[in-house]
Amino acid sequence: MIHGLILKTFQVFVEDTYGTTTWDEIAAEAGLDPPNFEAMLTYEKTMLRTLISSAETVLDKPSTQFIEDIGTYLVSHPNREGLRRLLRFGGVDFIEFLHSLDDLPGRARLAVPNLDLPEIELIDEDPAHFVLNITGDMRSFSHVLVGVMRAMADDYGALVLLDHKGGTSRVQQIEITLVETAFAEGREFELSQPGEQAGEGV
């Protein structure tokens, strides 16, 4: 089974990026009726593959292009502030964030016990070069991760080069070259959730 959170993410990404009409077309192409996923339910494992190939047909582009956009969308779209915050808990700078990626599947499971993500292993070759090994049977996840890292680098104000090296069906590799950690002013991150009333005094 595949967690509805993954499929729902795909759905809201399409809706927010290409519009609800496009989503309805993709859902129809995938034979999804009603054209809606529930984030807290689980679905047949084949659904993700069906969805991706339907999106390729409707959007008329290879999946790698829009799947990477999902990662960027997840972190940087105004509707999705939650995940950016959760990822920023991983570290105070981009390098710490990279190291926290090893824990990502574990952290995800802490929040959603039945959410299975591929295993991630960061290898630091030298202070500016990293390789990320992603092991699991959800190949598209590595492309999402490229988008996530790209957006998080922006968020931290770091300048990085990301290169998806492909790999086998089980293990995918991403090369990360850190050009500059403090390239630009990153976005603010407060531990406390925005919208919570700050108390008086102090």
Partner: peptide, 21 residues
């Protein structure tokens, strides 16, 4: 502490999702 804050935030997001469902 930071892990705890992470958990509180993640759990309330998940719980919200569940409540909506």
């Amino acid at each position: 502490a930071v892990e705890m804050l992470y958990l509180v935030e993640a759990k309330s997001a998940v719980l919200n999702s569940s409540l909506h469902l």
